[in-house]
Amino acid sequence: MADNPDIEALTPYARSLGIKLADWEDGVPVLCVEFVEAVEGRPEHFHGGATGGLLETAGYAALRAELARIEREAVLKPINITVQYLAAGKSQTSFAKGRITKLGRRSANLTVEAWQEDRSRPIATAVMNVLMAKTEG
């Protein structure tokens, strides 16, 4: 198996929210966030915004990992994201992993899944498009 790329998977926002790198699976980062007050919405449940932030961060992390693997430099800019909330996020650790559906020249399409204790029952999924702008200079 290839070495996991040395990427900055977490943005300042993601670190501030408490998102961590949990694991690597076949070169793809799996992120997690523990249930702390910063992610709480209604009592004892994840806030939809926090779950969305985790999904989005996992999507970017998957894309950064792939770009690092193929030694391609790009500045990532969000185009859009659609989040589907499938089940309430309970007061336990949430995980998320992204998958690149299409890596184009200018944009990438990703699907991301978030789950808690039972990976076969995701709590939320997302589809996102990311613009890959050329790096300056």
Partner: peptide, 9 residues
């Protein structure tokens, strides 16, 4: 600004 906080907002 990250896009995540806009989602929450």
């Amino acid at each position: 600004l990250a896009s995540g906080p806009i989602l929450s907002l």
